[in-house]
Design a protein around this nucleic acid. Structure first.
Length: 225
DNA sequence: AAGACACGCAACCGCTCCGTT
DNA sequence: AAACGGAGCGGTTGCGTGTCT
């Protein structure tokens, strides 16, 4: 037996033949007065990309992080523009070995300015290098003027704000990995640390291990932004 | 000038979830 | 507990418009 259509347009009397469901959708996606149309900012692009890396195509969750944007709008924007931009940028990024699971060793303390994404990504690569190239562990000290991140010798990282993180890894289906307490949290591109629901986190994070570009950690304290 | 092609985006389709009966 | 219906969601389509040849 076939499935019944979502609405019966033969009963719609005139005009564009919109049923109740179509009207509702049009209101939600287009006519609502608080909706922003077009013109995505660089910051919005970054948030969308970051969330997509972490939680996948959960457009409603992603849209909930962008004021005035609908899931449909975000989805269209991703499919038409960001997907290409994103695949181009990840092709250029450093390839990281994802097969080895290596305890993360930090030999330096560092802090990072939230705004300076480029510098931060360089820093991330350096951190990853520590996990994949043990012979270089003692060689670098990185520091910045602000104190958004600090890393100690005891495999823990403190995050005082929502900050930039590790580059995406296309070889993994999802950048979120379970921690010991069965919750999820991960780094992502462009300044966010979030859990499996896409909620942003800050607080103190204790690393268990690093798998490629993904860090497993327990967060001993967490604040919802 | 016109046909082909690419792109952006509103809307549709069909599925799942969840509250109600 | 089961059935039902509405709401919400993500994938996809189709149309209008712009660009290229």
């Amino acid at each position: 037996m076939g499935r019944s259509p979502c609405c019966d347009k033969t009963k719609v009397k005139r005009g564009l033949k919109r049923c109740g469901k179509s009207c509702r959708l049009r209101w939600l996606n287009y006519l609502r007065p608080d909706i922003k149309l077009g013109g995505f900012t660089e910051e919005e692009d970054n948030i969308i990309s970051s969330l997509y890396v972490n939680i996948g195509s959960r457009w409603s969750v992603i849209a909930s992080h962008l004021q005035g944007r609908t899931d449909n709008d975000v989805k269209n924007h991703w499919n038409t523009k960001l997907k290409k931009k994103f695949s181009t940028s990840t092709r250029k990024s450093t390839t990281i070995n994802t097969t080895s699971i290596t305890p993360m060793q930090f030999s330096s303390s560092l802090s990072l300015p939230k705004q300076e994404f480029d510098q931060y990504q360089i820093t991330n690569n350096s951190i990853l290098d520590y996990s994949t190239k043990p012979d270089q562990q003692q060689q670098s000290t990185i520091s910045y003027s602000n104190d958004n991140i600090s890393i100690s010798n005891s495999n823990s990282i403190s995050i005082s704000n929502s900050v930039v993180s590790l580059q995406m890894n296309q070889e993994l289906p999802n950048n979120a990995h379970p921690t010991r307490n069965d919750d999820f949290a991960s780094w992502c591109d462009n300044g966010l640390v979030m859990d499996g629901e896409g909620d942003l986190l800050n607080g103190k994070f204790d690393f268990d291990q690093v798998i490629g570009e993904v860090a497993n950690f327990n967060y001993s304290s967490q604040l919802w932004l």
